[in-house]
Structures are given as C-alpha cells and as structure tokens.
C-alpha cells in the first residue's frame, strides 16, 4: 500500500540542496518526485527516488541527516475537481492531510500524501474507490 519516501534535513544555507542532489546524482539515483518545505531555520526535503535504501545509505555516508518513511501515492485525473474530491474523502473520514505533493504526466496526476493516521488510508481508499499505486507502478513511470 505504501511507498518509500526519503526525508532529508536541510539546514537553511545556500548551496545545501545542491550538495545533497549532487551526492545522489553521483550515484545515478533517479528522482521521481521532490518537495522542499521550509521554516526560517531549516527545511525538510522529501524525495521519492528509484532506490530509497541506497539513497539513504549514500546520504548517511556523507553525513547528511535523513530518514526513510512511508507515504501513500494515489493516481487520478489532474483536475482540481478530482483533487478536491479525493482530499474530501479523507476529510469525510476524519483524516487530516499532513502534507501532499503531486506531479502530472499528461492528464494523469500522482499525489503523494501523508495523513495523520496512515493505518486507515487503505480503508478510506477502498470505501471511496481511490486508486492507490504501488512502488513498482511508480517506478515504471
């Protein structure tokens, strides 16, 4: 149900994001999706990559603070109305979205999200017929 995400601590310092991407680039890790969220002092870079375990080891070896965790990926039509409907399903069931990011290929959108209760995501998806995609499917894109 879930896919692996890599979260990376990002000190608010110019060039740091570049350094991290450079480390991953050296090892030919493919980045499928990325998002940076930041506060005034530090940020978290969230990445879906072609090989999360290896990317994590690489960052660790280079003294970068990182964590592997699980998120949900949905696929749907890339219209605002569909997005709104999907998020509405979770809200209906009392789940809140901690964060989400998305990318589109033609008219198809992929939404990566994390709710406050990952254990109930499957149940909600089944109830509302949302299409959860697996890591294999995502990597085939």
């Amino acid at each position: 149900m879930t896919i692996k995400q890599l979260s990376v601590f990002l000190e608010n310092k110019s060039g740091r994001l570049n350094e991290i991407l450079h480390i991953l680039g050296e090892a030919d890790v493919r980045i499928i999706a990325a998002m940076v969220a930041d506060t005034t002092e530090y940020g978290i870079l969230r990445l879906i990559t072609s090989d999360t375990a290896r990317a994590y080891e690489l960052l660790k070896a280079n003294q970068v603070s990182a964590q592997q965790n699980d998120v949900i990926a949905l696929s749907c039509q890339s219209t605002a109305r569909v997005f709104a409907h999907q998020l509405g399903c979770f809200a209906q069931e009392g789940l809140s979205i901690e964060y989400m990011y998305s990318f589109s290929i033609h008219d198809k959108a992929f939404v990566i999200l994390r709710t406050n209760d990952p254990n109930r995501v499957g149940e909600v998806a089944r109830k509302y017929d949302l299409s959860i995609i697996t890591e294999e499917e995502l990597l085939r894109l």
Binding site: V8, F9, I44, Q67
Partner: peptide
Amino acid sequence: ELSDLFTDDYSQL
C-alpha cells in the same frame, strides 16, 4: 548537530 533525522514532521523537530 542532528544525528540521523528521527522524524518527517516539523512539529516534532
């Protein structure tokens, strides 16, 4: 220095 990142959540940091 942070050791490994222990959370993906700002509020925890």
